[in-house]
């Protein structure tokens, strides 16, 4: 019995998780090293990877900062009523339930050139839709819950008494945060950041909708993979996919590491 279950699990994992990754690597290399290198060194690939990197960095910075602050407020703040906190708490999860395509559509509806806000920005000479700002907003939207969901439970678990102790000893809110709260939550924040990076790196649907997938302008790594597949340029698609998959595996290792640190505190 025992062997059967273990065997079955190993087979499922192998077929579902390991074989596909290996297949990507083979696909990237099926024209040899040069095919892989060519796929990657195309100017559009480099630009797409640059765009993805830029979005990841900006989104991670913004959402980490706001995510940590929102978690603090949702767990600790007395100026927010209990009912409001519960409401906000359930709204935080909504991006998880929203299809990325719908997330993109929301931004088109709110900030597109025909809308009031979009027109306003347009006059000021800033494009949002089909440009970098829209792509950043779309990615911010889909990655928003990740840091909050990691940090909130830890804040609840450690309780507020250490922070109260610091305040009776004369520490300001700022000092208390950095010297008392932060050391307890930092590994959860790191874990949330890794998840955010992974999601921002791989975001496809929302970005595809708001970016218009314009070559050399708004194309990201994932939308380029999509375009290459549509154009039957499979080797190039595989090369980029392999780079992205390598990134994912690295992130997976980071996740494991952050998780193990989180458990020891």
């Amino acid at each position: 019995m025992r062997r059967l279950w273990i065997g079955l699990t190993v087979v499922v994992f192998g077929l579902l998780l390991i074989v596909p990754v290996v297949r990507i690597a083979m696909g990237a290399m099926n024209e040899g090293w040069s095919g892989f290198a060519n796929g990657l060194s195309r100017p559009e690939t480099l630009h797409a990877l640059y765009m993805t990197g830029l979005i990841v960095v900006i989104v991670t910075l913004i959402n980490t900062m706001f995510g940590v602050m929102l978690s603090l407020y949702l767990v600790r703040a007395s100026w927010l009523g209990l009912k409001l906190k519960q409401l906000m708490n359930s709204i935080v999860d909504l991006p998880f339930a929203v299809s990325p395509v719908i997330g993109g559509l929301m931004i088109v509806l709110l900030l597109g050139p025909e809308t009031a806000i979009g027109a306003l920005f347009n006059k000021a000479g800033v494009d949002i839709l089909y440009a970098l700002p829209g792509m950043i907003i779309a990615t911010l939207f889909v990655t928003f819950p990740l840091v909050v969901r990691e940090v909130m439970p830890v804040l609840q678990e450690i309780g507020s008494s250490q922070e109260e102790a610091a305040s009776t000893l004369g520490a300001s809110a700022w000092t208390t945060f950095w010297r008392v709260t932060w050391p307890s939550i930092r590994w959860s924040v790191v874990y949330g950041v890794v998840l955010t990076v992974a999601r921002a790196l791989g975001e496809f649907g929302a970005v595809l909708v708001v970016s218009g997938n314009i070559l050399f302008k708004t194309q990201t790594a994932t939308t380029l993979v999509y375009q290459d597949v549509e154009n039957f340029n499979l080797t190039a698609a595989n090369s980029i996919a392999l780079v992205l998959a390598a990134g994912s595996v690295t992130l997976l290792l980071l996740m494991e590491w952050a998780k193990s640190r989180k458990e020891v505190h």
Partner: peptide
């Protein structure tokens, strides 16, 4: 202030 569970900075 001495807290019930001491609230030492762990």
């Amino acid at each position: 202030f001495v807290f019930q569970n001491y609230a030492l900075f762990k």
